[in-house]
Structure formats: structure tokens, C-alpha cells
Design a protein around this nucleic acid. Structure first.
Ligand SMILES: [Zn+2]
Length: 756
DNA sequence: CGCTTTTGACCCGCGC
DNA sequence: GCGCGGGTCAAAAGCG
């Protein structure tokens, strides 16, 4: 069953999340990142090191190095340094968390190395290795904590095997042992310098370690709880999943779902930003927009930087009034949530986005789009006539297109009525018959905002870079649909089912306890989720952070994927390239989170999940509203920017070779060749999609020139270029500049509707 | 050479 | 039925 695999894959992601959350210091390198949630990369490993030069994981494992280490070691990752100390305990925690999380998946193997502390050179190594078989069937998680000076490489194996070697410290292990992992602290190494161990000093150390052990026990208990819950959730989800899958696809009523993602659109009045698919424009939306724009509240002083996601429930969308009323809260919530505090020294930009979901027709769409990058998501069922799922993403982005991990080919461009900026049309080229399309248009009012609307569902497994995002997005959409359907409409239940196949169980269920968004109840049924877990309420599960460390669970060093549109780089190579170590600046961290599809999606998923956990059942009769912001990296693909008209050749006659080729390529294949478990819903959609109808190349009569059309046709647009509103701050992130809004108060309305 | 982008023309739904 | 406007097609150009 592919789903099993999928689930396992997701578990990896969960592990990563755990690690990040529990131990912000840890950097997950690209490969680790990639590994999470994707079967393409079976191996995930991370090692933490405090300082040092440890460069490769093998070395770490063998413990040959005598230097203190505490950073995550990824083969591809660049080195990073940070002040030492605090590594040991938290490291273990993180590892435990990871291991525990991994445990749900099945086999977890753990090894412990002796823990040793010698004055001068101590080695703190936490190693988490998740090995996943290619099919995802074999998952192995190795965990090892080590705090000692390693003596000789050849002795390492023995050390690893020898858990209880010295002194009675091992008792602390008991608790964790229940979970199959054991953390051992031993003052003596492999008998190398055991002589000193009984000195007063050593005793002090011993007591210290015992204390630590106690803490660890606590930690372990906590983790166990978390794991238990996770496992429960996991099974629950599985059940739900099964239920969904069983529901006949036929049950879906023709409905259309639209999801809007608003990225990094804070102060920018997105009210002017249209650019979605036509049906999206509705009065309700307009009303919404007005509301959300108007509700810019205050909150001046704090510099929050974070990813905040606020969920609100409003009574169904058709009810204009109520929905509108709910909006403002969303905004507030976004602003209020996610205080990533910490680092006052640095001006922390913030970013928020709005995710709104509503349903118009009272029905849910059959599937959620697995589209790309997430940001703010608004999901709306708009037009019954069309079943396609739409996801609109807004990204503050300099480049012409945003990087969503998929490959796209531009097939058209047009100037829409209300917006001088041309709208570009792209088609997914990852798979031959993929019906997914996207529209990209720059926001009228804020040229720096790129509005990308995705339509349809892929008939193929998504690229690594896009998968996480996709699942997240779809999860968001689905969630919204589900939450609304559970209650309000009788029809929707069945129709929502297919989309559920996109949900990633782990993300949705397991992650939540860990991410533990600070759920500060907003007014009017709003929930605010603090994905960074800095809110008081969420802190309990998070390992204490060193004050000055300014590290966050979502560490930088993850180069965003290369440009989506037209970039030829294999998507599965999601950013493995070693990157220069970026300073752990707040802004950058955020940027990293925002930019990395995996991270971001994980965060979002977690938030959504959290929401579901709390409200999922009770949200009957309501539609939900999310709000979050993301500053996203956009790959600049100069070519895709509409350019001034240039001389063209006269139309030629007859289908050339090229044409035939294209036709063949575009010719829809009715069967989806490679249906992955999570693309099943896609297939369903495909069949119902009108646009993907087979008519490969219809012979076209000679085209006469229609003046009107000509006029309407593209008009060159000056490059969006450079200037951004002051409210946005440019931050240097990996792979490009990040735009972060400094003014969180205003969350742009999602759509500029018809504005005209 | 293969693929993408460009871009005028065509298609089609919708409102009047 | 007509015009408008959005969406798509596909020849040709561009690019590596
Ligand atoms: Zn596709």
C-alpha cells in the first residue's frame, strides 16, 4: 500500500519537526530536509554540534573527533558555529523527541554511547539518523548521545555497545528505556581515564549529571506522552483516511474549491491584487476584502517575527455578514500571534499572511490542490460548475515567478482588465498530461506581490520541493473544507473525501502536539497559532532556548529550490547544495522557514492540525479562516517577465514538426500513468475536468486578425523591479532576498476582486 | 536539437 | 445576438 509508504515518509518529516522544535540549535541540512516526507531520499541524518569542525556524519558517528561538537551535521551543510554549552541536555531532548517520534513508525534502533565529561575536551554529540529504505518500508532511527572525549576510533564500537559501562548513572536511563531509548551518562570513558572519576570534582560532575538525568527523565516522560498522543493521532488519522478513501468518488457534487494563499502580504493592500481565476471574484470576496483591509490594528512596538497562523471560524461563507465580521479577528490574531521574541537587538521583520477559507456553495470540492508554495490560503468553493481546486498564493516576491518546486511552462499571457500587469498562464510540465495550471499576476496595488493561482490537481507525484507544500496546501484546503463540511452541509462530506488523500497524516496529526502552536484564543472564535512556539502557552513542550542564541527550530541554510518556472534543475535535488552558513539572524531564520517549502508547510500543517484537533469537531457550521504570512523566496526568472512587444514573424502555415511534438506532449492521456497514492484525487479530478478534454490539436482555420483581440492582447509591462513599499523589509536570505513586512497590522485582503 | 517563451488569434461564457 | 473579457492555442522565436 503506497499510503503506508507515504505515512512513513511523513513520519520522517515529523521527526525533523521534533528536532527543530525541541532543539532549535540543530540544523537540518538539505538532505535531511529532503528526506523528510519524501521517499526519494531515504536517508536522513543530523548531528548536533556545539562547535567544531565536524564535517561529516561518518566522522561524527565514529567519534573520532575530539572537538566539541554540537551542530547538526549534515554532509552537505556548511559549518556553523555557536557558543558552546547547553548542548548536552537539550541535545538529548531533541534526540529523544526525534527518536520517540520515529518510534511510531516501527523500528527504532538506538544506540547509546557513553557520556563522558572531562574538563578540557568534552564531546557532545547527538546523532540522529533516520534510515529509510527506498520503499519507505525500512526505517531505522539511530540515536546516540555522547558527551565525552572520545579516545580512539577503534574503541567506539565498543562504547556504543556498552551502555552501562561506568558508575551507576545508568539508572536515569530507565525511563527512556521504556521507549526503547536509553540515554546513558557515564563519567568514565572506556576505561581510558577512569582513574579520576572518583575525585570530588568528579563527584560534583556526577551529581550534576544526575540532575541532568532527572531532567532527562522528565523530558522523557513528556516525550513519551507526546509520542503516545502522536501515535494515537496517527492511528486516528489512518482510520479517517481509510474512511475517506472508501467514500465513493462519485459522491462528489460538482463543486469548485478555491484556495487562496496569501504570502507575505502584510501591509500591502492586497485589495488591489487580483489575479485569480475568474470565478473567484465575488461580492462576498469583495466584502471580505474590505473588512480585512480595514482591520488593521495596532501593535506597534513589538517586533515579531514569526510565522503566525490564525484560525478563525466563521459561519458559512454564504452568510456574508457573519463571515465579514469574523475577518478582523483573523487579522488581529495574526498580529498577536507568533511572537518570536528573543532577539531584540535586531529589528525583526515580520510577515503575515492571510489564509482564508470559506465556502460559498456549501459544498466542498472534491480535492484540494496540491499546489505549490504555501502562504496564506484561502479556500472557497465558488462555482459549482467547476470542480477544480484552486489555490491562490500571494508572495512578496521580486522574481517573476515564485518557486514552488514544480516545473511550469508558460502558455499564455494576457492583460487582465483591472490590472495593467499581465497575467501569465503556466502549465505543469512535470508530467505529460498533467492538467495543473497556474496563473501568475502581479498585484496591482503592490507590485511586489505576486499572486499565483493554481488550478487542478497533478496526475503525478510531486517533486520533492513541491510535495510538502502541496500536501500542506491541500491539507489546509482540505481541512477547511472538512471543517466546514463536517458540520454545515450534508452534501459535502462525501465530496471532501478525495481531497483527504492529500493530507499527510503525520503532519496533520502528529505534529501538532509538538509544534504546539500557542493557541491564544482570539476573539470571536478565533484561534491564533504560534508556530514558533514562543507563546507562553506553548512553551511547555519546547526546550528552553538559550537567551542569546537566537536560534529557531527552523534553521536557515536551506537554499530554496531553484526557480520553478523554466528551471531545469531536477526538482528532486531539493537544495542539497551546501550553502554558506548564514548567520542565525532572526530575520533570516524566518526567511528560511518561509522559504523552505518543507519547513513552511510543516509549520502550516502543524498549525492546521492543531486547529483541527481543537476545533475540528466543534466547528460545525463554520468555515475557517487562517491567517499567516510568509516571505517567500522567488526565483528570478527574467524571461518570464512580460517584455515589450517585439517584431514577430508572420504566421506560418501547416503544422511543423514542432507543433506535432507539442501536440503530442500536450495531448491528454486519459490515464494517469503514475498515480501516487496522494495523487489519486488528482486523477479523479482530472476526469471531471473540462479543460483537460482530449482534443489534442484541433485544426484551426486561418486566423484572422481581430483588432479588438489585438488590443486586448498583451501589453508590455515594465519590469516590476525594484522598489518595494517601505513596510517591507528586504532581508538577505539564502538564495535571494526575502521580503518581510514590518507592518504586521494590516493583513491584506486576499483578493482584489473585480476592482476594475 | 529540445525545450520554453512569446504573442496574435481563437474559443467561449457571461451580461446586456 | 453582440461585445467583452478571460483563457487557451500554437506558430515562431529564443535559449542553452
Ligand atoms: Zn503536475
Amino acid at each position: 500500500m503506497t499510503w503506508d509508504n507515504r505515512i512513513k515518509e511523513e513520519s520522517s518529516l515529523l521527526i525533523a519537526l521534533l528536532i527543530r522544535l525541541r532543539h532549535p540549535d540543530i540544523d537540518l541540512n538539505a538532505s535531511g530536509e529532503v528526506a523528510l516526507g519524501f521517499k526519494t531520499v531515504p536517508h536522513f541524518s543530523c548531528t548536533k554540534r556545539d562547535k567544531g569542525t565536524q564535517d561529516n556524519q561518518k566522522e561524527a558517528r565514529s567519534m573520532s573527533s575530539k572537538k566539541k561538537r554540537a551542530a547538526i551535521d549534515l554532509s552537505l551543510e556548511a559549518e556553523r558555529r555557536r557558543p558552546e554549552e547547553g548542548g548536552g541536555g537539550s541535545d538529548r531532548e531533541a534526540s529523544d523527541g526525534a527518536a520517540a517520534a520515529a518510534e511510531e513508525d516501527g523500528d527504532v534502533k538506538q544506540r547509546e554511547g557513553p557520556k563522558e565529561e572531562t574538563g578540557g575536551e568534552e564531546e557532545k554529540v547527538v546523532e540522529v539518523v533516520v534510515d529509510q529504505g527506498e520503499d519507505g518500508s525500512n526505517e531505522e532511527i539511530k540515536y546516540r548521545t555522547q558527551q565525552a572525549e572520545m579516545i580512539e576510533e577503534d574503541k567506539q564500537p565498543a562504547a556504543a555497545a556498552n551502555v552501562d559501562d561506568d558508575g551507576g548513572d545508568s539508572d536515569g536511563v530507565g525511563a527512556s528505556a521504556e521507549e526503547k531509548h536509553m540515554v546513558t551518562e557515564a563519567t568514565g570513558g572506556e576505561g581510558d581515564d577512569g582513574g579520576d572519576s572518583r575525585t570530588p570534582m568528579a563527584q560534583d560532575e556526577l551529581s550534576e549529571m544526575q540532575e541532568e538525568m532527572e531532567r532527562m527523565k522528565e523530558e522523557n516522560r513528556m516525550l513519551r506522552r507526546v509520542v503516545d498522543k502522536t501515535v494515537r493521532d496517527y492511528y486516528e488519522l489512518q482510520m479517517k483516511l481509510a474512511a475517506y478513501q472508501q467514500q465513493p468518488a462519485a459522491a462528489d457534487e460538482p463543486k469548485e474549491t478555491e484556495v487562496f494563499l496569501s504570502l507575505g502580504a502584510t501591509a500591502a493592500a492586497s485589495a488591489g491584487c487580483g489575479g485569480g481565476f475568474p470565478e473567484a471574484k465575488s461580492k462576498e470576496q469583495a466584502a471580505w476584502r474590505r473588512r480585512s483591509v480595514g482591520s488593521d490594528d495596532s501593535d506597534g512596538g513589538k517586533e515579531d517575527l514569526g510565522l503566525s497562523l490564525s484560525l478563525g471560524a466563521s459561519s458559512s461563507y454564504d452568510d456574508d455578514q457573519k463571515a465579514v465580521e469574523a475577518r478582523p479577528h483573523d487579522v488581529d490574531g495574526a498580529a498577536a500571534a507568533a511572537m518570536i521574541g528573543g532577539d531584540g537587538s535586531r529589528p525583526a521583520p515580520r510577515g503575515y499572511a492571510l489564509l482564508e477559507s470559506s465556502k460559498v456553495q456549501g459544498g466542498a470540492a472534491p480535492a484540494a490542490g496540491e499546489l505549490a508554495a504555501a502562504g496564506g490560503i484561502t479556500s472557497q468553493s465558488v462555482n459549482p460548475a467547476n470542480r477544480k481546486t484552486r489555490v491562490s498564493v500571494r508572495v512578496r516576491c521580486q522574481g517573476p515567478t515564485m518557486n514552488d518546486g514544480c516545473q511550469w511552462r508558460k502558455y499564455g499571457q494576457k492583460v487582465a482588465k483591472g490590472n495593467p500587469c499581465p497575467r501569465a498562464y503556466y502549465r505543469c510540465t512535470v508530467a505529460p498530461g498533467c492538467p495543473v495550471r497556474k496563473q501568475v499576476q502581479r498585484c496591482l496595488e503592490d507590485m511586489s506581490i505576486l499572486v499565483t493561482t493554481y488550478e487542478g490537481t497533478h496526475n503525478h507525484p510531486l517533486p520533492v520541493g513541491a510535495t510538502a507544500m502541496a500536501s500542506t496546501t491541500s491539507a489546509a484546503a482540505t481541512f477547511m473544507l472538512l471543517s466546514s463540511t463536517t458540520s454545515s452541509s450534508s452534501v459535502s462530506d462525501a465530496s471532501a473525501a478525495p481531497s483527504s488523500s492529500y493530507l499527510s497524516p503525520y503532519l496533520l496529526n502528529s505534529a501538532s502536539p509538538l509544534l504546539m502552536p500557542g493557541a491564544t484564543g482570539g476573539g470571536g472564535g478565533m484561534q491564533h497559532l504560534n508556530l514558533f512556539g514562543n507563546s507562553p502557552s506553548s512553551s511547555s513542550l519546547l526546550a528552553p532556548q538559550a537567551p542569546g542564541s537566537s536560534k529557531y527550530p527552523w534553521s536557515p541554510n536551506h537554499p530554496p529550490l531553484a526557480g520553478a518556472g523554466g528551471n531545469k534543475r531536477p526538482f528532486w535535488s531539493a537544495g542539497g547544495d551546501g550553502d554558506k552558513p548564514a548567520p542565525a539572524a532572526l530575520a533570516e531564520n524566518v526567511g528560511a522557514v518561509m522559504s523552505d517549502p518543507n519547513k513552511f508547510s510543516a509549520a502550516i500543517a502543524a498549525a492546521i492540525n492543531n486547529f483541527m484537533g481543537k476545533d475540528g469537531e466543534s466547528s460545525s457550521g463554520k468555515s475557517s479562516t487562517f491567517a499567516w504570512t510568509r516571505s517567500m523566496d522567488c526565483t528570478a526568472t527574467p524571461a518570464s517577465v512580460p517584455a515589450p512587444a517585439r517584431p514577430r514573424r508572420e504566421p506560418v502555415h501547416g503544422p511543423g514538426p514542432h507543433r506535432a511534438e507539442q501536440a503530442a506532449k500536450l495531448a491528454p492521456k486519459n490515464g494517469c500513468p503514475c498515480l501516487s497514492p496522494f495523487s489519486l484525487s488528482l486523477g479523479l479530478l482530472l476526469s471531471s475536468s473540462s479543460s483537460s478534454s482530449p482534443t489534442p490539436s484541433r485544426p484551426r482555420a486561418h486566423r484572422r486578425r481581430n483588432p479588438a483581440d489585438l488590443l486586448r492582447s498583451r501589453i508590455g509591462r515594465s519590469p516590476p523591479g525594484s522598489r518595494f513599499p517601505k513596510k517591507w523589509q528586504e532581508v538577505q536570505g539564502q538564495g535571494g532576498m526575502w521580503l518581510v513586512s514590518l507592518d504586521p497590522h494590516r493583513i491584506p485582503s486576499l483578493r482584489t476582486a473585480g476592482k476594475q
